[in-house]
Amino acid sequence: MLLDKGPSAAFEATEPAVLHFNWSASEHWIPLALTAVAFFTWLLATRSNKYWAALIGLNAATLAGYTAWCACNQLWLPETANDLGAEVDGLFNLVLFLTSIFYFITQAVLIYTMVQKPPANGRAKPVHGNHTLEIAWMLVPAFFLAVIAIAQLPTWAKMKGQTSDSSIPVGYDPATDSSDLLVTVTGKQWEWRMRYADPAKAKPTNPLLWASTPAADDVHVVNELHAWQGAKVRLMLRTTDVIHSFFMPQFRFKQDMLPGKTIPALLRTDKTNINSDGTERCWEIACAELCGGNHYRMRGKVVVHATREDFMRWLSETKTKQTARKDSLAAATKPSDTPAGKE
């Protein structure tokens, strides 16, 4: 078979690098510097326990500051490729905001207790609890948790449901599939195989059936997912061997592929990654479920063409190339003793 080229080459035997630490690189000297900081805090803390408060407090503050720094320096959520992604990021920010409040309050109280004045005559008041306080600090987080629980439901429905306009997840019905493009993605150790229906033909009437029974004139592509800007893409996720997970960071898309199942998923491609000068921004596909030694090599890419025409041109070209390759392969491998009638 044309595409059955087996697992990707395992490992290129190149000369290994000798571990050479470049100590001027910040990632190498900062841990050492922080070790020294911890050591000196320990020395200082023999004089006053306030230094312990400083250690724990500065740590909490540094973590918060570092997180903010990462968010401002692109060490953060990748670019979003669709509106749904923006919604996910909105939820992320909401949770980050609410948890930050809780984080700062609890850390501040903890640090305060470390520097507070000890009670007079060294005896604390033996308080065993406070009913009102218990009720209060149960109800307040409960309220915010409820907000978080409810706020996420519509987005979840749109992400995992099979229509994009329902606020509860809806199961898949092949009869009412209104997507613009059907792609069957089959995970296999260790590559992604994409299959498109013949561009010359109409969309398959039963996508589920088509996903499990390829047509002879389907277009096959390895490790590249193509679509166009503004398309509603129906992905039919399958695997032939083990569980893989189809992960496209820019689309906030991740779905396991289960042996024995075809999992339909809806993908919105609201943005193109072809720049106006014709260059392409790299949107990658990764496998997010351990699938063997070469799990890390299941790298693919997504191309969202600017227009449907661009996409169709690409698909037709691919189809033509594939037919030509098939013909030449058939000509090359046709044994002389094959009865002509069998072709």
């Binding site: 959520l77 919604e87 996910v88 939820l91 992320f92 949770v95 980050l96 609410l98 948890t99 948790l145 978080i148 996420q152 987005t155 979840w156 992400m159 995992k160 997970s245 992960f247 960071p249 906030r252 898309f253 991740k254 997010a288 479920e289």
Partner: peptide, 16 residues
């Protein structure tokens, strides 16, 4: 843990 309990956010950070 709350980030992961938010299912749409979990889509991004699951298995990372």
């Amino acid at each position: 843990g709350i980030f992961m309990a938010v299912t749409p956010v979990d889509v991004q950070i699951h298995d990372t």
